[in-house]
Computed example of a mutant assay.
Amino acid sequence: MKTLFLIAFASIMSLMGCAQQETATDAATSTALAGDEPLDDGTVLELNDQTLQDTVVKTEEEWRQVLTQEQYYVLREEGTERPFDNKYNSNERKGVYGCAACGNPMFTSETKFESGTGWPSFYAPISEKRVKEVEDVALGMVRTEVECARCGSHIGHVFPDGPEPTGLRYCLNSAALSFKAK
């Protein structure tokens, strides 16, 4: 019984340490990247826990009113824009990439890399809390879809063929992103 208690206690302490480490990392990122200046489209990118607590729920008609036709196609209908002919594939400016639908900051230029695919690619999100990964079985294949954790919009897909340190390639649609330069 004592052994079982010690194993349970060690497991709980380990989990608490991971949670504290993630919180400290998120706080450091928040301090470094926080901002409240509106983007060209009026979206505000703020990196804080409140952004995620304020889940955005709209009807499809409300989404149609606030998104362009291309954004609606990508974000709400899970479409894909053409490769190489999009806004952020070749963007080399420093800054934060957020969800074009709700402003949730998801990726930074620090993790962006040239994948050769024609879409902006990143090897890691700002925090795993900022994106949601779901199984996508459309088009006769199994992939991992990337959604905004705040509003559920389709952002792109993640593949296991990216660079170190994660080995992941978050292949995203520019139409699904807003960018705020540092």
Rank of each mutant, 00 (worst) to 15 (best):
S90N: 14
R82E: 15
S127F: 14
V134P: 09
Q71C: 12
K132Y: 09
V96Q: 00
Y72P: 11
R76A: 03
M141W: 11
K87E: 13
I126E: 02
L139D: 08
V131E: 02
E78L: 11
Y88A: 04
Q71S: 13
D136S: 12
S90G: 08
F107R: 00
E70Y: 11
E92P: 00
G79V: 05
V142W: 08
A101N: 05
P83H: 04
D136K: 13
G98R: 06
E92Y: 06
Y73I: 07
N86V: 02
R76C: 05
C102N: 09
E92M: 05
W63A: 01
R64H: 08
Y73R: 15
E135I: 12
F113I: 04
Y97F: 13
E78Y: 10
T108L: 07
T111P: 06
K87A: 10
K129L: 09
P105M: 11
G118M: 00
E110G: 02
F84N: 13
Y72T: 15
V131F: 05
N91Q: 10
I126Y: 00
W63V: 05
T117D: 07
R64F: 02
W119K: 01
R130K: 10
T108W: 01
A101Y: 03
Y88T: 04
P120C: 02
E135G: 06
G98Q: 02
G118P: 00
T68Q: 04
A100L: 14
